[in-house]
Write a protein that binds this DNA or RNA. Structure first.
Length: 505
RNA sequence: GGCGCCAUCGUCUAGCCCGGCCCAGGACGCCGCCCUUUCAAGGCGGAAACACGGGUUCGAAUCCCGUUGGCGCUACCA
């Protein structure tokens, strides 16, 4: 076994090692991103490894979702379960023999021993210790078993786990790249299980073996692992191996300061995709959550992130995920997309809103109108999911009026007459384009003595159903003469009827 | 309970290591103004923070101690 050697290649090798027990959530993606940026910055390797030793919670579906989620945000890996690599396999359940070999080494060295205590017994003793106000450490009962006792327990067919014999003298110091020196009293550690009775390794053992075998140089992971690091360091030492460097990232919190979880709604990258976020915006935002270049710059391309990323500038405090800033950033990226790109990225959302078929049905003209519609609404978008609402009225006439908008602008004395007149005028307007429309409405304003808003807002509601839209002349020109006039008449009729039937105010 | 981590505007943060340039800078959000047919975008301006208490020092956001709070670990989960 060569892996126990202390030599370390100077090429950076980092890994992201999720356990496939759920969806890929943003916190994990951020950890992966930092690892990836670190690797790319240093021209090193980024490795993906699946920690699937918890058979009851791991699933193939989740593993697929993990990889897909990472790929969606634009990460790629040099070694991993799907692409292979020189230190595979890259899922722990396929590496059992390896852990067994390392465990055997520890047993030989007297640093590991079989334990026959059942979970129930352990649980009971733990409760008891807690009740007495003592630390719930493993009592080393099985360390002191005589050969005869051991034989008896084996003969009983008792399940057997393997425990690591901790060195409880002195202290273990973690030299953390983001937190500095962190010291732990070894007397507080206990003999933890390294091989479960099902033969699979536990996390604290498997990570060490894998990181060693895969020649990982920097372990960049979540803060929740900091407390476990002294245990792992002891395993490295017992193996006579040089540990990698460590960097513990603060975790992501929900707005209520609790850990980000399901009940806070969106946390899986899939959810963000469905909400219409762009991967480049999510990456930029996530990079800034816990890392800052100079605090002035907010927008970073991936290339810039790679160039500027460093662990020294990773902040120590936990960060709260702020979806409003993400939305702002998403809007920023959306505004910088070409119209064609925007159209392409909007496609799934237009399909979901049943608009894609209508657009397609218009062929080339449909594409042209969609492009123009997107052009007009681009600066108003925050997510791709907003797109359908901004383009729908260019492709369908049968919409309902927004209640508040209708009340404010349609259900007023004189409005039906005004709309009918405009409809008639527009039918004769030549040409029916933006300059002509503007000239017409200016004339109408002067002639009636109304303010532009008093004229245009009713028109807006009649033509779009809402009181918010892009510039009215552009909208009218794009909707087209026939449809515009028809909608104005429909709104006039609707308003007249409502005003007569149930007088408003 | 024990151990560990963390602590600057509502949020992300700069500054902290190497005390004075900080009556604390930027960004999101919020408010106001400008532009304007509405809403955005854009421009300009504003309110908004060094958790608390002790030290050390001529001087502390910056160093030390304590308190409080948040989070994590303490599993045959990862």
């Amino acid at each position: 076994m060569t892996s126990g050697s202390t030599q370390r290649s100077d090429a950076v090798r980092v890994r992201y090692a999720p356990s496939p027990t759920g969806y890929p959530h943003v916190g994990g993606v951020r950890t992966a991103l930092y690892n990836w940026l670190f690797a790319r910055h240093h021209g090193g390797k980024f490795i993906l490894r699946l920690e699937d030793t918890d058979l009851s919670r791991s699933s193939e579906e989740s593993a697929r979702a993990m990889l897909e989620g990472l790929r969606w945000v634009g990460l790629d890996w040099d070694e991993g379960p799907d692409v292979g690599g020189p230190y595979g396999p890259y899922r722990q359940t396929e590496r059992r023999e390896l852990y067994q070999r390392y465990a055997a080494r520890l047993v030989e060295a007297g640093r590991a021993y079989p334990c026959y205590c059942t979970p129930e017994e352990l649980q009971a003793r733990r409760q008891e210790a807690l009740r007495r106000g003592e630390a719930p450490k493993y009592d080393r009962r099985c360390l002191h078993l005589t050969d005869a006792e051991r034989r008896r327990l084996e003969a009983e067919g008792r399940p057997r786990a393997l425990r690591f014999r901790i060195d409880d003298q002195g202290e273990t110091v973690v030299h953390d790249l983001v937190r500095g020196e962190v010291r732990f009293d070894n007397a507080l550690l206990d003999d933890f299980v390294i091989i479960k009775s099902d033969g699979l390794p536990t996390y604290n053992f498997a990570v060490v073996v894998d990181d060693l075998e895969m020649r990982i140089t920097h372990v960049i992971r979540g803060d929740e692992h900091l407390s476990n690091t002294p245990r792992q360091l002891q395993v490295y030492r017992a193996l006579g191996a040089q540990p990698p460097a460590f960097a513990h990232l603060s975790i992501l919190l929900a707005p209520d300061r609790s850990k980000l979880s399901k009940r806070h709604g969106a946390q899986s990258v899939d959810a963000f995709r469905e909400m219409g976020f762009l991967p480049e915006a999510l990456v930029n935002y996530l990079a800034l959550l816990g890392w800052g270049y100079d605090a002035e710059q907010q927008i970073f391309s991936v290339e810039e992130l790679i160039e500027k990323f460093s662990l020294e500038r990773v902040s120590k405090n936990p960060a709260i995920f702020d979806i409003q800033k993400l939305e702002w950033m998403n809007g920023y990226y959306l505004r910088r997309l070409s119209v064609d790109e925007l159209a392409a990225r909007s496609r799934p959302f237009l399909e979901k809103a049943q608009l894609a078929q209508r657009i397609d049905a218009q062929g080339e003209e449909g594409r042209r109108r969609l492009r123009r519609a997107l052009e007009l609404s681009q600066s108003r978008l925050r997510t791709l999911a907003d797109v359908p609402a901004w383009v729908a009225y260019y492709f369908q006439d049968d919409f309902a009026y927004d209640e508040g908008a209708a009340r404010r602008h349609l259900l007023r004395a004189g409005v039906p007459e005004l709309l009918e007149r405009i409809a008639a005028d527009l039918e004769g307007l030549e040409p029916f384009d933006e300059p002509a429309l503007e000239a017409y409405f200016t004339r109408l304003r002067d002639e009636t003595g109304l303010k532009m808003g008093d004229v245009l807002q009713p028109v807006r509601v009649a033509v779009t159903g809402k009181d918010v839209s892009p510039g009215m002349f552009e909208v009218l020109a794009l909707v087209g003469r026939g449809a515009a006039a028809a909608r104005l008449r429909r709104a006039a009729a609707w308003a007249r009827q409502r005003l007569a039937g149930a007088p408003v105010r």
